[in-house]
Amino acid sequence: MNLQLLQTRLGYTFRDAGLLQQALTHRSHSSLHNERLEFLGDSILNCVVASVLYDRFTGLDEGDLSRLRANLVKQQSLYEIAQKLELSQFLRLGEGELKSGGFRRPSILADTLEALLGAIYLDSGFDAARDVIRAFYIPILDTVDPRTLGKDAKTLLQEFLQSKKISLPTYNVVATHGAAHSQEFEIECLVPKLGIQVFGRGGSRRAGEQAAARLALEVAGQALQKSPAAGRKAKPRAAQLKLAGIATVQDTAPSDEPATAEQSTKDARGDAKQQKQAGSKSA
């Protein structure tokens, strides 16, 4: 285990090698593990990220700053940083965790990263920990949009439509798939003014709505870029499912859905025409 390589990636060299070892030690490995360091590192991380956001985004209010911080310090964000450090190769895990793939588990990697920050604080003080955290996050903040980071698709779609003075979308459950214990919901999202009708799927109604909202937001943006004053015609449901990448489109099969009034009229006319032709032949 080349701990010097890890320290190079962190941009920090420990004076007390024991603190580094402890920060990398999971509770499954030994009694001297990293959970207390994780607690300390979590607090320092939140403080430093809050300070960075406060200085960088002077026009944002408390609510937006809180949203940004929550998104930046959540488990997934820490896991992605840990992945860049290739932290998994330095973990000290018990035999059970090693066999179960604990070195790949996002929660373990995120917790270990926080423990490292706590260890740096104890080793050299707050400024050293702050410098390491800033080195992690400044490149991230250079590439994100503070107005949208951390917002879910439904919120972004709502804000987008409101900015264009367009009525809010409606969501409808059109189908459920699978057994009762593992249902998948198919959700329709409609934006009538733009002629948008898209479908999303998810393991819950909320997840399905989010999937549909993401697609609707993409289509709405494209529609307004091409023709700000005109809406886009809704694509057939099968085409939307293919576009969303949420279902495999099968060969066209007879529909169990009730026919529309227009279709019923066409069918009636067709039947009458066939009957007339048959009568003429008989005569």
Rank of each mutant, 00 (worst) to 15 (best):
L78Y: 02
L78K: 04
Y79W: 07
Y79D: 03
Y79N: 03
E80G: 08
I81K: 04
Q83H: 00
Q83K: 06
L85Q: 11
L85R: 08
L85Y: 10
L87N: 01
L87P: 10
F90W: 13
R92Y: 15
R92H: 15
R92G: 10
L93R: 04
L93T: 01
L93K: 03
G94A: 05
E95F: 11
G96F: 07
G96A: 12
G96V: 13
E97W: 05
L98K: 09
L98Y: 02
L98D: 02
L98R: 05
K99Q: 13
K99Y: 14
K99C: 05
S100L: 15
G101H: 07
G101D: 09
G102H: 04
F103C: 14
R104D: 04
R104W: 13
R105F: 09
P106I: 06
P106C: 01
I108T: 02
L109Y: 14
A110R: 02
A110V: 06
D111Y: 00
D111P: 01
T112Y: 10
E114K: 07
E114P: 10
E114L: 10
E114C: 14
L116M: 05
L116F: 14
L116R: 01
L116A: 06
L116V: 08
L116D: 05
L117M: 03
G118F: 12
G118L: 06
G118M: 07
A119G: 13
A119W: 07
I120F: 07
I120N: 04
I120R: 02
Y121I: 12
D123T: 07
S124E: 14
S124K: 06
S124A: 13
G125Q: 15
F126S: 06
F126E: 12
F126W: 03
R130K: 05
R130Y: 01
R130I: 00
R130E: 03
D131K: 08
D131V: 09
V132D: 00
I133H: 02
I133E: 02
R134M: 01
A135S: 11
A135P: 03
A135F: 10
F136S: 06
F136D: 04
F136R: 00
F136Q: 01
Y137V: 02
Y137W: 08
I138H: 09
P139D: 07
I140E: 11
D142V: 04
D142I: 06
D142S: 14
T143F: 10
V144W: 09
D145T: 07
D145F: 11
D145R: 12
D145M: 08
P146A: 15
P146N: 10
P146F: 12
T148C: 11
T148D: 12
T148G: 03
L149N: 07
G150W: 13
K151S: 07
D152I: 11
D152P: 09
A153M: 11
A153G: 08
A153N: 14
A153Y: 13
